[in-house]
Simulated assay, not measured.
Amino acid sequence: MKETVTPGARIADVCVIGGGLVGMAIALGLQRNGLHVAVLDEGDVALRASRGNFGLVWVQGKGDTLPEYADITRLSARLWPTFAAAIEDYTGVDVQLQQRGGLYLCLTEQELEDRTRMLEKMREAAGGDYPYETMDLKQAREKIPEVGDTVAGATWCPEDGHVNPLLLLRAMTKRFKMQGGIIDNTGRVETIVPRPAGFRIRGRAGDWECARVVLCAGLGNRELAPQVGLSAPLLPNRGQVLVGERVRPFLNYPTGHVRQTGEGTLQIGDSKEDVGFDSGTTTKVMAKIAHRAIRLFPLLRDVKLVRAWGALRVMTQDGYPIYQSSTAYPGAHLVTCHSGVTLTAFHEGPLADSIASGLYDSSFEVFHAERFTL
């Protein structure tokens, strides 16, 4: 019997659920493949990890226990310059990409030794093709003269960089709309009903009908994935970020704990807290973040804080993404990760191309959620 479209339902080739950095990157890539795409987003009441992150395009140390993750991270870093240039040409929005390298500053010799050992193992796993350098304090100061006396040294990677994540989200959203994309941010997706010819997606403001659906809803994927025969065992992990006033440019390279934006403000962070869905801030953690930052850069002692926030990372048990297509309901795909900035160019490029072709490439099998049940 021929299936009919639900009366009043809106129609798209693909519905991408989630309008953050991950969802918009996937949506742009699907558009590039000639598909009519609708992004269904919860709106400003959502958790909004895309608006609370650190903005790093970070390579060093990513994938230390999974070479395939190191590979896609480095691939995305290589694709980033072309992606950033193309989106600026199209929208006029400069996302402030800088990829001159980055440093991870260590406060003790043991910390530096452990980090060097980890990166050396990654180099061995890559057959020698993994660029990094271990620096003592003097060498680190050649990159950033303001590094403090109590710093033992740093690891350096020439592939690291950073962007302005708010401008990135704005640019991707603008380009998506300019290319005819639809963003429906009238409320949370309530149910996904698989049908023989695709999917019916029900929300508070009405239904959508689509041949394919891509779940990019961050922590919301936990409830959505089982509806299409997938699993998203995700955990929230809070990070708190301090923002300092504008100061003279001194951080020519981002670091793992402090970065300076294009406007001169400072972002300070890297806390990791298992506190459920509490996205607030605490004096204890903020003090700890500030104390470390001052040890790294003593000049920060006199910098005024202008605001602070907490945001929830989208984490799996092992910290790596879940990329998977549903075998029970073909046409449904899951994309979830906590490195939405770093992996933006990979998501818009190779990953979106794979989804558009109908099924993830076999090389993505290492990222299936079944790894958590083996």
Rank of each mutant, 00 (worst) to 15 (best):
R10P: 08
A12F: 07
D13V: 10
V14K: 08
I26C: 02
I26G: 00
A27M: 00
L35W: 05
A38V: 11
L40R: 01
V45K: 13
R48P: 11
N53S: 09
Q60M: 14
K62D: 00
K62Q: 04
P67G: 03
R78N: 03
F83W: 01
E111G: 15
L119I: 14
L119C: 14
E120A: 07
P131F: 12
Y132L: 06
Q139N: 07
V147Y: 08
P158S: 04
E159I: 02
L167D: 11
K174A: 14
M178I: 13
I182A: 09
I183R: 06
I183N: 12
D184Q: 15
R195I: 04
R204I: 01
A211K: 12
A217I: 11
E223G: 06
V241S: 01
G244M: 04
L251C: 01
H257E: 10
V258C: 04
Q267V: 05
Q267S: 07
G269H: 01
E273V: 00
V275N: 00
G276T: 03
T283K: 08
A290P: 00
P298V: 05
L299E: 02
D302W: 06
K304T: 10
V306R: 13
V314E: 11
Q317F: 10
Q317C: 07
Q324F: 09
Y329S: 13
A332S: 06
L334G: 05
V335S: 10
A345I: 13
P350I: 04
A352Y: 15
G358E: 12
S362K: 14
V366D: 06
F367N: 10
R371P: 08
R371E: 09
T373G: 03
